[in-house]
Design a protein around this nucleic acid. Structure first.
Lengths: 142, 142
DNA sequence: ATACTTGCAAAAGATTTGCCGCATG
DNA sequence: CATGCGGCAAATCTTTTGCAAGTAT
């Protein structure tokens, strides 16, 4: 069973037919490249359309915005102009983006997180949010 | 004397009248809020217009793009939709953005940089670029 | 009945481009 | 002369919105 739907219920977000389909597509986005693929709205709409051609792209936009505001989705502004989305995870993580393929690898580094907090505090700020993106190219083994 | 102009010469970027003015405005952007203010294209155009009303916003767009491709400017996609620019610095730095005022504080943390390289290598990637943004709110002293 | 949703098309905001005259080497 | 540059307006791209009809409570 799809945990995005569960979260909607918990947050009091009404689950219409189209939202159910969008939630389903988002849930399945997890395994496309081995890890998640963080689709943009256009790509989402394409996948959603294969299930129900009647769903408009405006609805997809409205739904991802709604889900994001409810904390169900996370929005990322990686290079490339279009926003990309992923279902919110329990544990925070950052991203390494393959500059050649666009593929995304997720990682966690407690040490870096700790240092970020220290840096912010040193500057007189309370850390509210952060974004760490690494851009790299695959090391080919000879 | 304005070091952006120097860089243009070194890189073989022709310095027209309008580019000179844009370079000047960019150089002066350094001290607006105590640190740099990372203006967006609209803001740049506004400041440039005070010097020469004839300069079109298209020229500003073309110029920042040209400067960026020449390594003279750095483009940032912070939250808020519009790209913001700052003159390239010799030493790399990251940004802490005040979520209440939009003010930007620059910082460097060698330790974090080192860990980023290690993370990338561990994942099988060569680190080409990275982006670290901290979002925080000022700690008020009692 | 009332309040929320959706599809469609139009609008809006940011950025790019075609065209054509102008400047520069 | 030949190439590059700049102004203007039109075009593009992503995202939002107004409206009228449909749905759920």
């Amino acid at each position: 069973m799809n945990s995005i739907e569960e979260k909607c219920q918990r947050k009091g977000v009404r689950l219409t037919d189209q939202r159910k389909i969008i939630a389903k597509v988002l849930s399945e986005s997890k395994a496309v490249y081995g890890s998640k693929d963080h689709p943009d709205v256009d790509e989402l709409h394409k996948r959603v359309s294969e299930i129900d051609k009647k769903i408009s792209i405006a609805t997809v936009y409205r739904t991802v915005k709604l889900f994001e505001e409810s904390g169900i989705l996370e929005k990322h502004d990686f290079k490339g102009g279009k926003a990309r989305y992923e279902p919110s995870m329990d544990e925070h993580h950052d991203h390494l983006i393959d500059i050649n393929t666009g593929e995304i690898i997720e990682f966690v580094d407690k040490e870096i997180e700790k240092l970020q907090n220290e840096v912010a505090k040193k500057l007189g700020y309370k850390l509210v949010d952060h974004k760490l993106e690494l851009y790299g190219s695959k090391i080919k083994k000879k």
